[in-house]
């Protein structure tokens, strides 16, 4: 059993939880994920790590209610326990293993969309601790769904916030901000984009034109998370990869996003999609099969 030390709602239907998990906190790196199971009947839910405290032995996760499993998770409070919490799974972000001399000279742009802001945070924080300042764009549907702005401000070089409806910060999609920054004369050696599949697809389309190598973090359907089931297979550069062990981060310019988006709908039936739309309302963020 894994104790929840802190639980709070960051925005409507988006929750942050800090969980006691000594083994994971000791070894995890930015880019890796965990799998959580709420109780005996729960699903195995993969979530990218948002933060970790090696001394305290805790791992922080952020999730959005998207179905029955996450809804059950959201009911837990500080002091409650998760039945299972396993990790760290997948590979660390590539820069973690890069020689620091090279890394320090790089100009890096992070693009975070919606809940994708959470997995971007530990990467930017890690870089800041190594003395590398990265620029960060956070995109949200609307002001009320913006998360971790203050935390990100503390670790980012420049932070740009944009909302689809213009209710806060800049107005429009993250791709617009990328284009604006480059037009303003900014130069980036590498871009890391994490968010809804559809956002990553369009960021990659844009950065390909701008010739900025781009890394994306995929969160496909998984069961075990250790390479056993193959549910998370994704085509990268014509080759089949398992996101759980080969990823979750891949070269975004080589990912077959259309296939990946179709595979995300696998367990969503027509009725399921309708129910999802009703439940999610304004928080709907892709994956239903009707919006891409």
């Amino acid at each position: 059993m894994y104790k929840i030390l802190e639980a709070r709602e960051l925005a409507a239907n988006i929750f942050l939880m800090e969980v006691e998990a000594g083994r994971i906190a000791k070894r995890c790196e930015p880019g890796q994920f965990i799998i959580v199971r709420t109780d005996e009947e729960g699903e195995r839910i993969p979530l990218t790590i948002c933060d970790y405290d090696r001394e305290k032995g805790t791992v922080t996760i952020v999730f959005q209610i998207v179905g029955a499993g996450t809804r059950r998770m959201a009911r837990l409070k500080a002091g409650d326990y998760f039945q299972d919490f396993v990790g760290p799974l997948g590979c660390a972000s590539e820069f973690v293993n890069e020689p620091l001399e090279g890394l320090i000279r790089k100009s890096i742009l992070f693009v975070a969309g919606g809940v994708g802001t959470a997995p971007v945070y530990p990467q930017v924080k890690w870089l800041r601790e190594k003395g590398v300042d990265a620029d960060v764009i956070i995109g949200a549907k609307t002001k009320d769904l913006l998360i971790l702005e203050k935390e990100m401000e503390e670790v980012a070089g420049n932070l740009y916030v944009t909302t689809d409806d213009g209710s806060y910060g800049r107005s429009g999609m993250v791709t617009q901000t990328i284009k604006d920054l480059v037009d303003e004369g900014k130069h980036y050696d590498v871009c890391v984009a994490i968010g809804p599949m559809i956002m990553m697809k369009f960021v990659c389309k844009m950065t390909k034109e701008l010739q900025i190598p781009t890394v994306v973090s995929l969160n496909p359907i998984m069961v075990d998370g250790t390479g056993m089931c193959g549910a998370c297979r994704v085509t990268v550069d014509g080759e089949v990869k398992f996101a759980c062990v080969d990823g979750p981060e891949f070269d975004g310019h080589k990912v077959d996003f259309d296939q990946a988006m179709k595979r995300q709908q696998m367990y969503k039936t027509a009725e399921g999609r309708a129910a999802l739309k009703e439940e999610e309302g304004d928080t709907h963020h892709g994956g239903c099969g009707n919006c891409s």
């Binding site: 699903e43 390479g227 193959g230 549910a231 297979r233 089949v240 709908q265």
Partner: peptide
């Protein structure tokens, strides 16, 4: 020996294609 093999034929990533591992794990473990 946990890693499933696939055939490497066209269409294998289509929705509805599973490894026996995934199918059985969903049914048995889950």
């Amino acid at each position: 020996a946990g890693l499933p093999k696939f055939m490497g034929i066209p269409g294998e990533q289509a929705n509805g294609v599973f490894s026996a591992n995934e199918y059985l794990t969903r049914s048995n473990l889950m």
